[in-house]
Amino acid sequence: MDWGTIINNTLAGLLTPTTIAFALAALGLAMHFGFAGLLNFGIAGFMAIGAYGYAISVLTFGFPWWGGMIVGIIGSILFAILLGIPTLRLRGDYLAIVTIAAAEIVRLLFLTTAFTDVTGSADGLFGYNNAGGFTNANPFPPGSYGWGPWTYNSETLWVLTFGLGVLAVCVWFLWALMRSPWGRVIKGIREDEEAIRALGKNVFAYKLQALIIGGIFGGMGGIIFAAFANVSPGVYVTSITFFIWTSLLLGGAATIWGPVIGAVIFWTLQAFLSNILPELALAGILPVSGTQAATLRFVLVGIGLMLLVIYRPQGIFGDKRELTFVK
């Protein structure tokens, strides 16, 4: 057992572009579910639209990287509107099914061979970070930065810095909104939208605004993910939505920092398990093969999600009294 490598890899999981991307998406879900009570099971769709919007506008339409990212965000906003206008009147569990179906439609449209020239079909898209100039915009000269498990080359450091900047802005944005009277209305809607309507608030408009804000966060998550890795349709499956839900519930749905910390814990645990389980199998402590050991960590995610919802639905940092599962 190489404990040094295991611990090193686990600690590295604390800060990766993936962690940041998923923290952003979880932040979006916190807006949707934790604060506004909207059961969005289609956050993967928002991420996919952000990522593809960025990549396609650079590769097909020759946009600069920042232009592409703006297109990705506009795409998420349009998706939120497209999804929200007809569905926000639906009952909570109906909304869940509609959003999960919409996200699958988005994924299938990106996956189909009919649009291969634009979407790359199953291969996905790559090379847009160079083509759009994101890589060149890197202010850090080539070299090695950081120490110990947190050693990065200049490219990774650039994505991390950019991602952390975006995350910080989004966290501030959510915090500023939720302490305002606007946030009060949103929380009121989560509790009972009819009561809020009876007080003269346009509930539909508020819900749509919440869906758009959370959708932008989700889209930003997809963009940060794309800024680091290739865009591949295999990423934006429903499992990813559920992993993000797990991160969110882990940290506490109705909190500002909960989703961020939840995502960090989730991906650090994933890094830990994906390192230690095959090692345990190799060392003969676990009587399973290496691939089986890798599968085990997802089994643990599922069990973890169930235990969390049953025994600690407010999350690690949530207030016990402020349970979000009111309905």
Binding site: P181, R184, V185, K187, G188, R190, E191, D192, E194, A195, I196, A198, L199, K201, R321, E322, L323, V326
Partner: peptide
């Protein structure tokens, strides 16, 4: 008001009022 009271349970009494 409603037959089944709609207090916004997870908001404080003051926040309920301010809404």
């Amino acid at each position: 008001t409603f037959q089944l009271t709609k207090a916004l349970s997870l908001l404080t009494v003051l926040d309920n009022m301010k809404l």
